[in-house]
């Protein structure tokens, strides 16, 4: 693949970087990334990955746009209320960069379809807002050996981590099981300040670009926590747990199962 003149202009600020160059840009253009959710996190992640020229973006979301999403979900718009988020994201990202092929997947993920959905992609991005999905995505990535960049937000705080199965920790190394229903409030119950997903989604997009380029240190065995009110970041070590039920030495989880989404609608 050779970069055409338009691409040389579009990606000139990448090409200038010693860590990227034309070779790195071609890697980005050939990369395939799938995102779970086109909501608060999925919007900025997809926006930046599309801008950077990540060639294929899968967007899984079965929801439609509501007015209450627009305070933070920047890929959508007022006139698109009622439209599927996956279709809206495709429209926005492809308008930003026609080099990018966005595949809108209007499905609810479950143990039955997730492995099939992610199998043709290099990297998975989790921007879901509930624990059943988060654990399902974690287990699917560990079982299929896919790198996973996971983000979460609530109120004024967010976190990011990069899971490289076989190399580092996974979500279950930190918390073996999802919290019981009702213990942790969802965004719908607790709220989230508008720009927070922009910060966390931006960090997730950066982790994805680093993985594709093979540059820098991924957030492996680390959880990066952002406190918006204090304007502070801290990095917490998460060692790989040899007793982890999915990625440990003697795993008990060898196939996927769905968690009841009883305490939270599957809403991104």
């Amino acid at each position: 693949m050779e970069l055409n003149d338009e691409q040389i202009h579009r990606y000139s600020r990448h090409i200038i970087l010693p860590e990227v160059g034309g070779k790195g840009q071609k890697r980005l253009l050939s990369a395939r990334v799938i995102m779970v959710g086109a909501g608060g996190l999925g919007c900025p992640v997809g926006y930046y990955l599309a801008a950077a020229g990540v060639g294929t973006l899968g967007v899984i979301d079965n929801d439609t746009i509501e007015l209450s999403n627009l305070q933070r979900q920047i890929a959508h718009s007022t006139e698109r209320v009622g439209m599927h988020k996956a279709d809206s994201a495709k429209k926005t990202f492809e308008a930003l960069n026609p080099d990018v092929n966005v595949i809108a997947i209007k499905e609810r993920i479950s143990k039955d379809n997730i492995l099939d959905l992610i199998k043709d992609y290099d990297i998975v991005v989790d921007g879901s807002d509930n624990f059943p999905t988060r654990y399902l995505v974690n287990d699917a990535c560990v079982l299929s050996g896919k790198p996973l960049v996971s983000g979460a937000i609530l109120r004024f705080e967010g976190q990011v981590t990069t899971i490289l199965p076989g190399e580092g920790h996974c979500y279950r190394c930190l918390f073996e099981e999802p919290p019981p229903p009702g213990l942790v409030p969802s965004c719908q119950e607790a709220g989230v300040l508008g720009a927070l997903p922009g910060v966390i989604g931006g960090l997730q997009a950066m982790e994805v670009l680093k993985l594709i380029l093979g540059k820098g240190e991924p957030l492996k065995n680390r959880l990066l926590i952002y406190d918006a009110l204090k304007a502070s970041f801290r990095k917490v070590k998460i060692p790989k747990n040899p007793k982890c039920p999915v990625c440990g030495d003697d795993p008990t989880i060898r196939e996927l199962h769905d968690y009841e989404a009883e305490y939270c609608q599957m809403r991104f």
């Binding site: 040389i8 090409i15 200038i16 034309g22």
Partner: peptide, 14 residues
């Protein structure tokens, strides 16, 4: 600039 360097860099990469 910066296309002078961009083009030069792409040439030297190959």
């Amino acid at each position: 600039c910066p296309y002078t360097f961009v083009k030069s860099k792409l040439a030297i990469e190959d």
